[in-house]
């Protein structure tokens, strides 16, 4: 049995905002709906919005859902979340927001929250007269033919939700959940995204290091934090040998440390240790630092 949260069960048993919104002739009011899914897929959502045209704001939201417990709860949650939002604000609502509102969803049911986000987008795009029913970037080669999912959509969902396994992708957008012939393709996309991410992270880190190396503009607080970080990395090694090091004070480029335990009783090793810490700090924080044992 699925492990649903109380919130999911509550919104399933007592859903809020179910039904359609009647088209009205009122001035400055527009009624529109967006649809995703189908009976064949096993779940479908028709999301109705009542929009204040001058304010570009959602006055009311209702849903009609064909689907399981979590599909109904996700739809109901979505309508509660977006009432009162401007359309631009509503477009920022992600499937994660919906899941969080529900106190989480079972992994295999994450696609229910994706359906909510997509119906919202469909409704707003329709209102704005944008023809696309799905993400522009989702245009691409059909990867999962069973559920009609493109490679670009898989890529977007992987990036947005930080997914790392094929199983997670299937849980979120069903891709790969039927015949399984696209599983290898999904895996390739995940690996590609991870490589991109790793490359970006490495580039950013290198850039940060470069800035740190050249900049003398560290505030005292920043300096202390960085020195402390380096000392914290060194401590376990010292502790293993029965010693310890503690930051006592800093005065400009002068770093005063207390060397304790086994190390302090041996003057030779203390000197070596001081030099070692100094080298490390110069390398990692500022090249002009001088370490002094107190």
């Amino acid at each position: 049995m699925w492990d649903y949260t109380e919130k999911v069960l509550d919104l399933f048993y007592n859903p809020k905002n179910q039904g359609a919104i009647e088209v009205t002739e009122e001035n400055d009011i527009a009624v529109v709906f967006g649809e995703v899914g189908s009976i064949a897929c096993g779940d479908a959502l028709r999301l109705h919005l009542k929009i204040n045209v001058p304010a570009d704001q959602i006055l009311d939201a209702r849903f009609q859902t064909f689907g399981c417990t979590s599909a109904i709860a996700s739809s109901s949650a979505l309508t509660e979340m977006i009432k009162g939002l401007t359309l631009d604000e509503a477009l920022n609502v992600t499937n994660k927001d919906i899941a969080n509102y529900l106190g989480g969803l079972p992994e295999a049911k994450m696609h229910c929250s994706v359906m909510g986000q997509e119906a919202l987008e469909a409704a707003i795009y329709k209102y704005r007269g944008i023809e696309v029913e799905h993400h522009d970037e989702d245009e691409g080669a059909l990867l999962c033919t069973c559920f009609g999912v493109s490679d670009n959509r898989v890529r977007r969902i992987v990036i947005e939700n930080n997914l790392t396994t094929v199983e997670e992708v299937t849980n979120y957008i069903k891709a790969g959940g039927s015949c399984g012939s696209c599983l290898a393709g999904i895996e390739d996309i995940i690996i590609g995204v991870q490589e991109d991410k790793a490359a970006t992270t490495a580039r950013v880190e290198a850039e940060l290091n470069r800035i740190q190396q050249t900049s003398r503009g560290l505030t005292t607080v920043q300096k202390i934090t960085k020195i402390q970080q380096v000392l914290d990395e060194v401590r376990p090694m010292l502790l293993a040998d029965g010693g310890d090091v503690e930051l006592f004070d800093i005065d400009g480029d002068l770093v005063k440390v207390i060397l304790k335990g086994a190390c302090s009783s041996c003057s030779g090793s203390t000197a070596t240790l001081k030099d070692a810490i100094e080298t490390r700090l110069r390398d990692r924080v500022l090249p002009t630092l001088i370490v002094e044992a107190v």
Binding site: P15, Q18, G19, E35, G37, S38, I39, A40, C41, A44, L45, R46, F63, Q64, T65, F66, I72, T145, C146, G148
Partner: peptide, 23 residues
């Protein structure tokens, strides 16, 4: 059923996908 957007087999938008899936 009151929660569901479907109430007849003739609803066009769902048939479309069904055919696509049948391929």
């Amino acid at each position: 059923r009151a929660l569901s957007p479907f109430n007849s087999d003739a609803a066009g938008w769902l048939q479309e996908r069904e055919e696509a899936l049948a391929i």
